[in-house]
């Protein structure tokens, strides 16, 4: 954490500007990469085991949450170490509505998003008064408090306390020949694509430019007539809604919600995923999600006893090799190749 603005101290190349903003990889190349990625994404669930499908779905779910965090931190300069809370709210909204309200999963998804948007928006109000480090601590406090609140007596009748709640996993409808893992994979993929599309358009819009102006120079932004309070709280709400959708999806994919799935460790993991993927990069979120799912396993395989140390070492190595995240690295490599050809 730091007392300076979070992202304006980027490395020499492209100071302060997120990857997406800079003149960079040509659009044609980006489209081709997207197309190839999509084909692979569609083919994969028919080629791998169910457990792998489950893992890939989890990667996408994390990526959705990281995307939300990216809108907040990467594009708006607000810091959060508490996004696990919004994932928890999304997950519990779905679980409780399905358990006690008789809702189907698909009906709970927008409600979870909406509810998280409202909570995020409301949390954004006091957050307005807090500068970076203080905001980080406040959000971190939220993350630490969440599992305790979920376990606490007043909420227990709905949350199931320490035990948590079991959640029913939807099967593919209309007799589509997919098993439930494959089905949820595609549901997540479609939702993820829609959310990524929305994020790309948001960032490229007037609203997005205002968000970034606030990040880069709040005083100048105010002078330009941008309503900083409204933009910041709304961004907080949107970011929370992304996390809420991720939470809602995770509830049905894991088929279970429990307080200890949503500790501050998850919040910190999202933060790590954000930085590793690339602050301000939308495709980077996917890489961040993969890092979150696979690297702890790799670390475990390197050494059972020293898994934590191995994880830390990998993390340091990654940060040394790509201080601007995976997105920054990819961009640097592509630009180098293109320049050589030119």
């Amino acid at each position: 954490m730091t007392d300076q603005s979070m992202t304006s101290e980027a490395p020499a190349q492209g100071r302060g500007k997120p990857v997406a903003e800079r003149a960079g990889i040509p659009v044609g190349l980006k489209r081709a990469a997207l197309l190839i990625g999509l084909i692979i994404a569609i083919a994969l669930p028919f080629m791998v085991k169910n457990f792998t499908i489950f893992q890939l779905t989890t990667v996408m779910i994390y990526a959705i949450a990281i995307l939300g965090l990216n809108l907040l931190t990467g594009f708006n300069g607000q810091f959060s170490l508490g996004h696990s809370t919004f994932i928890a709210i999304g997950a519990y909204t779905t679980a409780i509505l399905m358990e006690f309200g008789g809702f189907g999963f698909y009906a709970t998804l927008p409600l979870a998003a909406l509810f998280c948007f409202i909570v995020g928006f409301l949390f954004g109000l006091p957050a307005l008064r807090l500068e970076s480090i203080y905001l980080a601590l406040a959000t971190f406090a939220l993350a630490v408090a969440t599992p305790q609140l979920l376990k606490s007596a007043p909420f227990e009748p709905w949350t199931g306390g320490v035990q948590g709640l079991l959640v029913f996993k939807p099967e593919a409808p209309f007799g589509i020949p997919l098993n439930s893992d494959q089905w949820m994979y595609f549901v997540t993929l479609v939702i993820g694509l829609v959310l990524a599309f929305f994020a790309v358009n948001l960032v490229g819009s007037r609203t997005g430019r205002a968000m970034m102006a606030i990040r880069d120079n709040p005083i100048a932004a105010r002078a330009m007539g941008i309503n900083i309070a409204l933009y910041k709280t709304t961004t907080f709400g949107v970011s929370a809604a992304y996390a809420g959708i991720a939470g809602s999806l995770s509830a049905v994919v894991v088929q279970f919600v429990a307080p200890d799935s949503f500790t501050f460790v998850l919040a910190i993991g999202l933060f790590v995923g954000l930085v590793i993927g690339g602050v301000g990069s939308i495709p980077g979120a996917l890489f961040g999600g993969a890092f979150l799912v696979y690297v702890p396993n790799i670390a475990e395989e390197l050494s059972k006893g020293l898994a934590g140390a191995a994880y830390g070492a990998i993390l340091l190595l990654v940060i040394y090799l790509m201080p601007a995240g995976a997105a920054g690295l990819v961009r640097a490599i592509v630009m180098k190749v293109l320049n050589r050809r030119a």
Binding site: T2, E9, P11, F271, V272, G312, I319, P323
Partner: peptide, 12 residues
């Protein structure tokens, strides 16, 4: 490196 990278190093 960016400030956020430092925080990740702390976590590591």
């Amino acid at each position: 490196a960016p400030v956020l990278a430092h925080i990740v190093a702390f976590i590591a």
